[in-house]
Amino acid sequence: SLNIVTVTLNMERHHFLGISIVGQSNDRGDGGIYIGSIMKGGAVAADGRIEPGDMLLQVNDVNFENMSNDDAVRVLREIVSQTGPISLTVAKC
Rank of each mutant, 00 (worst) to 15 (best):
S1L: 05
S1E: 05
S1V: 06
S1Y: 13
S1P: 03
L2K: 13
L2D: 09
L2A: 04
L2R: 04
N3R: 03
I4V: 03
I4R: 04
V5R: 06
V5I: 14
V5M: 14
V5N: 07
T6W: 03
T6Y: 06
T6G: 04
T6Q: 13
V7A: 06
V7E: 02
V7H: 02
V7K: 00
T8S: 10
T8P: 06
T8R: 09
T8A: 07
T8H: 07
T8I: 07
T8E: 11
L9S: 01
L9K: 00
L9Q: 00
L9A: 03
N10S: 14
M11L: 09
M11D: 06
M11K: 07
E12W: 04
R13P: 10
R13Q: 07
R13F: 11
H14Y: 12
L17D: 02
L17A: 04
L17W: 00
L17V: 05
L17H: 01
G18P: 01
G18F: 00
I21N: 01
I21V: 13
G23R: 11
G23C: 04
G23T: 05
G23E: 15
G23V: 02
D27Y: 09
G29V: 13
D30C: 05
D30S: 07
D30L: 08
D30T: 05
D30N: 09
G31H: 10
G31V: 07
G31Q: 04
G31T: 09
G31I: 05
G32E: 04
G32D: 05
G32T: 05
G32K: 04
I35M: 15
I35N: 12
G36C: 06
G36D: 11
I50V: 06
G53C: 03
G53S: 06
D54R: 00
D54L: 01
D54P: 00
D54T: 00
D54K: 00
D54M: 09
M55D: 02
M55C: 11
M55H: 12
L56A: 01
L56Q: 00
L56Y: 00
L56K: 01
L57Q: 06
L57F: 05
L57G: 00
Q58R: 15
Q58I: 09
V59L: 10
V59E: 00
V59W: 00
V59C: 09
N60R: 03
N60V: 00
N60D: 07
N60L: 00
N60W: 00
N60F: 00
D61Q: 07
D61F: 02
V62W: 12
V62L: 09
V62D: 13
V62T: 11
V62C: 08
N63H: 09
N63K: 06
F64V: 05
F64I: 06
F64E: 01
E65K: 05
N66E: 15
N66Q: 14
N66K: 12
N66W: 03
N66P: 07
M67N: 05
M67S: 08
M67P: 01
S68Y: 11
S68P: 05
S68E: 08
S68A: 11
N69E: 10
N69C: 07
N69Y: 13
D70P: 12
D71W: 06
D71L: 06
D71I: 09
D71P: 03
D71V: 11
A72D: 00
A72I: 03
A72H: 02
A72F: 00
A72Y: 01
A72V: 04
A72T: 02
V73I: 10
R74I: 12
R74A: 10
R74V: 12
R74P: 10
V75T: 08
V75I: 05
V75D: 04
V75K: 13
L76N: 01
L76P: 02
L76T: 08
L76Q: 01
L76K: 00
L76E: 02
R77E: 08
R77N: 11
R77Q: 12
E78G: 13
I79T: 06
V80Q: 14
V80A: 14
V80L: 07
V80M: 13
V80R: 14
V80E: 11
V80S: 14
S81F: 13
S81H: 14
S81M: 10
S81E: 15
S81C: 08
S81N: 06
S81L: 10
Q82Y: 14
Q82T: 13
Q82L: 05
Q82G: 05
Q82A: 13
Q82M: 13
T83G: 03
T83E: 08
G84V: 03
G84L: 08
G84S: 10
G84Q: 05
P85C: 14
P85W: 02
P85N: 15
P85M: 06
P85Q: 11
P85G: 10
P85V: 11
P85F: 07
P85K: 15
I86F: 03
I86V: 07
I86T: 06
I86L: 09
I86R: 03
I86W: 08
I86S: 01
S87W: 03
S87T: 06
S87R: 12
L88H: 01
L88S: 00
L88W: 01
L88V: 15
T89M: 05
V90H: 01
V90G: 00
V90M: 00
V90L: 15
V90F: 03
V90R: 02
A91R: 05
A91Y: 04
A91N: 15
A91I: 15
A91F: 05
K92V: 05
K92N: 06
C93K: 15
C93R: 14
C93Y: 15
C93H: 14
